[in-house]
Amino acid sequence: GIDPFTGEAIAKFNFNGDTQVEMSFRKGERITLLRQVDENWYEGRIPGTSRQGIFPITYVDVIKRPL
């Protein structure tokens, strides 16, 4: 089901994660935001896939912030 505490964002740019914990994505992908890790990073996942990880806040347009 849908978790009411998650947020939502759209990727503004392609992001290629450097490490296992970073999640790569392509511009235009819809991302579920799980939490804000710190002032620069979100943790999120791509709905319908097993992809999950952290990524820079500046790479996405936030539609709804996670609670």
Rank of each mutant, 00 (worst) to 15 (best):
G1W: 10
G1T: 13
G1C: 14
D3V: 13
P4E: 14
P4R: 12
P4W: 15
P4K: 14
F5D: 12
T6S: 12
G7H: 13
G7D: 09
G7C: 12
G7F: 11
E8Y: 14
A9H: 02
A9Y: 05
A9F: 04
A11G: 08
A11F: 03
A11N: 00
K12G: 03
K12P: 00
K12C: 08
F13E: 13
F13N: 09
F13T: 10
F13Q: 13
N14D: 15
N16D: 14
N16C: 12
G17Q: 05
G17Y: 02
G17K: 04
G17S: 08
G17I: 04
G17N: 04
G17F: 02
D18H: 15
T19H: 11
T19L: 10
T19A: 11
T19C: 10
T19I: 06
Q20A: 15
Q20N: 13
Q20I: 14
Q20P: 15
V21M: 14
V21P: 10
E22D: 05
E22F: 11
M23S: 01
M23K: 00
M23C: 03
S24L: 02
R26N: 10
R26G: 07
K27G: 04
G28V: 01
G28F: 05
G28R: 02
E29G: 01
E29D: 07
E29C: 03
E29N: 02
R30M: 11
R30W: 09
R30E: 06
R30C: 09
T32Q: 11
L33E: 05
L33R: 02
L33D: 05
L34P: 00
L34C: 08
L34A: 03
L34I: 13
L34R: 03
R35S: 08
R35I: 06
Q36W: 08
Q36S: 07
V37L: 12
D38V: 05
E39A: 12
E39I: 09
E39Q: 09
N40L: 15
N40V: 14
Y42A: 07
Y42E: 01
E43R: 04
G44D: 00
G44P: 01
R45G: 05
I46E: 01
I46K: 02
P47K: 10
P47C: 08
T49V: 03
T49Q: 05
T49D: 05
T49I: 02
S50G: 12
R51C: 05
R51F: 04
Q52R: 11
G53H: 01
G53W: 01
G53F: 02
I54T: 07
F55S: 00
F55M: 02
P56A: 02
P56S: 02
I57F: 06
I57G: 09
I57T: 09
I57Q: 07
T58P: 08
T58Q: 13
T58L: 12
Y59A: 11
Y59P: 00
V60W: 01
V60P: 00
V60F: 02
D61T: 14
V62Q: 04
V62L: 08
I63V: 11
K64H: 08
K64C: 11
R65Y: 15
R65G: 12
R65Q: 15
R65C: 13
R65L: 15
P66Y: 04
L67W: 06
